[in-house]
Design a protein around this nucleic acid. Structure first.
Lengths: 345, 345
DNA sequence: TTGAAAGCGGTACCAT
DNA sequence: ATGGTACCGCTTTCAA
């Protein structure tokens, strides 16, 4: 038995294992790395020494000398680890990475531009094999130098600007148009549009789609019904409160983001209008199908996005130097009920 | 301008920077680490060389020689990165770690016992400064050796067995009792209990709480209404379908986990009973307040749990060798509507 | 089958 | 203010 008093002793090195087993450093290395050419007898002595000393190889030290120096680590910078989109994406990425015996070092940017640069620097310093970036910044010129030194990067959700790198994004314009057209097709003509910060390209594109759907029918959205730069559920609820108080309130609402849809639902519920005003949201989320009425959404397939990102980054890690690819994934309309409420006669 | 053709050149080392700047290795080291005692002139030459070569320090190499060899990395093994509990926990942990300039290497275990051991081994090999573990295994004897070599660990959500380490868990028994008592207090006497795999200690404890609440009132739950080992939303829906078909169906349901509550809601909705049968769930989740009726839940404060875990692991990393602490966090009942539906007269 | 020596990219320590 | 040399823990290369 090893007693507790030994706790905290310094970690054993390969050299110490060699000394205890009475063999050379190189022999221990052979055993630890399961290389051939070690007699059963010696192997046993080494294994035993490893156990006695609680020896654990030091991956950083190995990689330092190793020729194919991969760290088996990719860095992933997302908007917020805890939101369902980022979390779902990471999960799919993790699954792809696991097959390659690679870990995922993830961090939340919270739309922080400086934080993005700091994190990229830190990750490069750690020599991650690749970077996955859901950028907070508008331009990523700073990345040019990093890519030059050999760290590949794949952008996700938002396209790169100022640097030419792979990307996987959703067709937000089409998504915005699909959701809006769905409401127009049912006869709605006063459709409110709720959008996030328009400086974020995805939000702007969804708004573009909202407008395009109207124009395709020769219509123009009422400017008073289009509200941008809403960044929280509370704000969204407040906005909807005000819209419902108009002389001619909207008969339908298109929410450009799931947290805005939450606010809309709350406001509608407080006014007893959940079954009277139609609602379509961009972004699916857990439980959306259990709302009453169930929420009709434009869904982005997170798992597919994450898988695609994973495949692309590993292709680059494996040495693919072909020109950057830009994958656009089409969203789908999931009809559940809230979006099929007809306009009042 | 640096042309694209330079892409992929091997990464510059400190030695190369020194050569280009015409100074010694040690001087470059001083500049890179912002140590004092370098003339402005030399500093400028070095900085310039760093820029020209796109030099980036190699953290692993630095740490190898550095005395206080911290990697600035903690490993976090959770049940599933993409579920809201794990994700919320990681987010809070990340925030604590960020203040310590430490990154979080997270991985999903999916209740995989072997995967847990493999991941711990991998993380130790990477020399993470600490481990945060939401264990999949029933016993963690294997961890004794790891702790002995100096990698501290904190358990979260589920307590350690076979090894004495810090832990932060929720009082599941009390939570189960609170939720059940809430239903009993309103006169319900036929309360169904839905629970996850009872081999998972948290599920068993919630069931214990469910029973204890009954016993405290001198009651005994009807065995036909208590169903364990339900592991998915679909299964839960199916179970509730069957319970509702009984001669004496339940007038209320206590769901031991949020995904089971989802199934219950779906089944109740299909039977048109959402406003007739009371429902309380263990585990809050996004949108629970927007359901109709809004879901009454026993909430675990994920942010607080994550923060506590973060503080504990860093205390250990900082050298605290006091006896392991076991923090129990009390859940709270969040009354919203679904749990206040009265029994039929 | 086994081992000695060099070196990976840096830091520590001591001179100068 | 700057540099030289040993050395961190391991792999590589080559010799025995």
């Amino acid at each position: 038995m090893t007693s507790l008093s030994e706790a905290g002793r310094s970690r054993a090195t390969m050299r110490e294992v060699a000394a205890l087993a009475g063999v050379s450093l190189k022999t221990v290395s052979r055993v630890v790395n399961e290389e051939a050419g070690v007699s059963a007898d010696v192997r046993e002595r080494v294994t035993s020494a490893v156990r006695h000393l609680d020896y654990r190889p030091n991956l950083a030290a190995s990689n330092l000398r190793r020729t194919s120096a991969r760290t088996g680590l990719i860095g992933a910078l997302v908007q917020d680890l805890s939101n369902s989109f980022s979390a779902g994406l990471l999960r799919a990425l993790e699954d792809t990475a696991r097959a390659r015996r690679t870990g995922v070092l993830a961090a939340s940017l919270d739309e922080g531009v400086d934080r993005e640069r700091e994190m990229v620097h830190d990750l490069v310093t750690r020599r991650v094999d690749g970077l996955v970036i859901m950028p907070a910044s508008a331009r990523q010129d700073y990345l040019v130098a990093e890519l030059r030194t050999g760290t590949p990067a794949v952008f996700v959700d938002r396209p790169p600007r100022g640097v030419d790198a792979d990307s996987v994004v959703v067709d937000n314009v089409t998504g915005g148009r699909m959701g809006t057209e769905h409401l127009l097709a049912q006869g709605h003509r006063r459709i409110a549009g709720l959008f996030h910060l328009t400086q974020i390209v995805t939000a702007q594109q969804r708004l573009d789609g909202f407008r395009a759907a109207h124009e395709a029918r020769g219509l123009r959205p009422d400017p008073r019904l289009v509200v941008t730069d809403i960044s929280s559920t509370d704000e969204a609820a407040h906005v909807v409160d005000q819209l419902l108080a108009l002389n001619e309130p909207p008969t339908a609402i298109f929410a450009g983001r799931n947290i805005l849809a939450s606010g809309a639902v709350r406001s509608l519920a407080e006014h007893g209008l959940r079954r009277s005003v139609a609602l379509v949201s961009f972004d699916d989320f857990p439980l959306a199908d259990l709302l009453d009425p169930p929420l009709t959404v434009v869904r982005q397939d997170v798992a597919r996005i994450g898988r695609t990102v994973g495949e692309m980054i590993f292709q680059r890690i494996d040495g693919d130097t072909s020109p950057p690819r830009h994958v656009v994934i089409e969203p789908t309309l999931v009809v559940r009920g809230s979006g099929e409420i007809p306009p009042p006669p």
